[in-house]
C-alpha cells in the first residue's frame, strides 16, 4: 500500500516494544527484529574483517590478534546467541506465514482457540532447539578463555 495516511504509526516507540494484550509472540517479534539488526551490523563488519585474507598472512594474523581478546569473544558469543534465536524463530515465522500450524477457521465457542494459540507449541519446540544450539556452541566460545 502506498501513501503515508494508510500507515500512520500513532504509538511511536511503544508500539514497537510493548507486548500489550498480545502474547509472548509479540516479544518474540521484538527480539527477532533486534537480533536481525544486530546480525546485520556484525555481518557488514564481518565482510571487511574476513577480507583481510587478500592482504596476506601477516595482515590476517594482525587482525585476528586484535580480535582475540575476551571482550571480542563475549561479543562474538552474543552474535552467536542472536543467530541461534533468529534462525530458529525464523523457521517458525516462515512456517506460520506460509499457513502451517495455524489450523482452520472455527466458530468462537468455548473453550476458545485461535491460530496464535495453535502455533504456540512450535514456538516452544524451536526455542528448545535454539537452546541446544547455544549450549553446543557455548563450548567453543568457552575454550577461548584462559584456564579452559
Amino acid at each position: 500500500m502506498q501513501g503515508s495516511e494508510f500507515k500512520k504509526n500513532r504509538l511511536g516507540l511503544m508500539g514497537w516494544l510493548s507486548g500489550g494484550r498480545y502474547g509472548v509472540e509479540r516479544y518474540a517479534y521484538t527480539l527477532h527484529r533486534l537480533t536481525g539488526l544486530a546480525i546485520l551490523a556484525y555481518f557488514i563488519l564481518h565482510i571487511f574483517v574476513t577480507s583481510a585474507r587478500v592482504l596476506g598472512e601477516e595482515a590476517w594474523n594482525t587482525v585476528m590478534g586484535f580480535l582475540n581478546s575476551p571482550a571480542f569473544k563475549v561479543g562474538e558469543f552474543l552474535v552467536y546467541l542472536a543467530f541461534a534465536y533468529h534462525a530458529l524463530n525464523g523457521i517458525r515465522l516462515v512456517l506460520t506465514e506460509l499457513g502451517f500450524f495455524l489450523g482452520t477457521p472455527c466458530q468462537p465457542v468455548f473453550p476458545y482457540s485461535n491460530s496464535v494459540k495453535r502455533q504456540r507449541p512450535v514456538l516452544v519446540v524451536v526455542m528448545i532447539v535454539a537452546a541446544v544450539v547455544v549450549l553446543l556452541g557455548g563450548v567453543d566460545f568457552l575454550r577461548a578463555f584462559p584456564g579452559e
Binding site: 543467530f83 553446543l136 556452541g137 563450548v139
Partner: peptide, 24 residues
C-alpha cells in the same frame, strides 16, 4: 526475503557448524 532466509539457514548453518561446532 523468505527464500533468502531459507538459503541462509542452510549455508550459515554449515558455516556456523564449521566455525564453532565441528571441533566439538
Amino acid at each position: 526475503h523468505l527464500v533468502a532466509g531459507a538459503v541462509i539457514l542452510v549455508l550459515l548453518g554449515i558455516h556456523m557448524f564449521i566455525m564453532h561446532l565441528a571441533d566439538f
